[in-house]
Amino acid sequence: MRHFVYGAAVVLGLAMPAMAEYPERDIQGIIQWGAGGSTDTVSRSVTPHAEAVLGAKVILQNVTGGVGAIGLNQADRADADGYTLLFGAENPLLYKVMGLGEKDYADFVPINVIARGIPILVAQPDAPFDTFPEMIAYINENPGEVRFGSTGPGGLPSVVTAMINDKTPIDVTAVPYDGDGPALTALQGGAIDVMPAVLGAALEPVRAGNLKAIAIFDSEGVEQLPDVPAITDTNPEFADLLPWGPFFGIFAKAGTPDDVVAKLTDAYGQATQNADFLSMMEGRGFRMLSLTGAEAQEFLDGWQSQTAWILYDAEIAKNSPEDFGISRP
């Protein structure tokens, strides 16, 4: 009944100053990437658990475009009151060096850095090489012949290719796709030969034998594909660059009151521990992080400095990380 009276009062336009505790209305969640993508799936499957803790609805909507910058800017324009959340991936940390925008996660507070993807190198099943050293040897014998899938500068394939180039320069043809889904489709159709992808997207075709896994691009192997070696097993020189991977996180605008951030952090912290969610994340080949507070910030800073410098050294980045106070790792 009390609710009803309050509701009636509001309907009559007698809205009082906010007295109720946060959250007293629906929260808006902006997903940086399109419906059906990894960021979208992860955001939509963790949120119902957090809603249960918060006791409010989080209305998710996809605001896409500009490698996620359109969504980030929209979240940045909203008030710092915790009623607008950003569900994003790693890309904003590269906006400054790639010349894509002035804003990045420095303008936000991390609520939860949920999980990290593991890069994997996959090839066509009939590719004339099975291991990473064999692949490098083949590429060197046939310069420019091998077609690598890519998802545009700054995407996972470009970073992984830059890392490979950093250790052993290779001459390949990069064919751009708009996302790793279409690129993996093209790989299975024979339009490209090799693709650095995220494990989750490549897992099923690899298990079915439609794709051949060359190496897990990480410092250790994964249990989903026990037979595939980690790159550091064959080429230990990569150890100083790894582990590296794209990640997903939830962010609120900087300046959001501490108690609101604490409440959101608690809700999403609990949500990411949910058993159903964990098993889905494992099935999709993600490594759970669930980092919050200072830990999350440290992770973001480290990731940014490492990746920005790799891209700058590979001459993919337009601007020097130094210009933005990003120090060399």
Partner: peptide
Amino acid sequence: GALFIHGLNPGP
């Protein structure tokens, strides 16, 4: 995505 969430692994 929905199949993944429901614990299936859509693939070949």
